[in-house]
């Protein structure tokens, strides 16, 4: 297997399991190809760092008062005039 065939499998394997034959071929290539191992490492590192950054637990600051008032006004207006075919009301 060449790198040009292995890299798409590296990517595909990040989002869905590969079938057994392809996984076997990829594993064999990764044993002998440092470049493709590095590609896999970088993709996994990027994915994990992105997930962790997105899910960090820093508390969100409260919404500004003007934003709260605006959102509440929009909700009241929407509640007063539900669209035809919208969700059923209570």
């Amino acid at each position: 297997m060449h790198c040009r065939d292995a890299l798409p499998l590296v990517l595909a394997g990040l989002d869905a399991p590969l079938d057994a034959a392809r996984q076997r071929d990829l594993d064999a290539h990764l044993l002998v190809c440092a470049d493709c191992v590095e590609a896999l490492r970088e993709h996994v590192l990027a994915r994990e760092a992105f997930r962790d950054a997105s899910l960090a637990t820093a508390p969100e600051p409260p919404l500004p008062e003007a934003v709260v008032r605006d959102l509440v006004a929009r909700m009241r207006a929407a509640r007063a005039a539900p669209p035809a075919g919208g969700a059923r009301s209570a």
């Binding site: 929009r74 909700m75 929407a78």
Partner: peptide
């Protein structure tokens, strides 16, 4: 993001009954 938040709360108001 603020626009999406507005749309979301409008949808909440419309759908909360269900």
């Amino acid at each position: 993001a603020q626009d999406a938040l507005q749309d979301a709360f409008v949808n909440v108001a419309r759908a909360i009954g269900g």
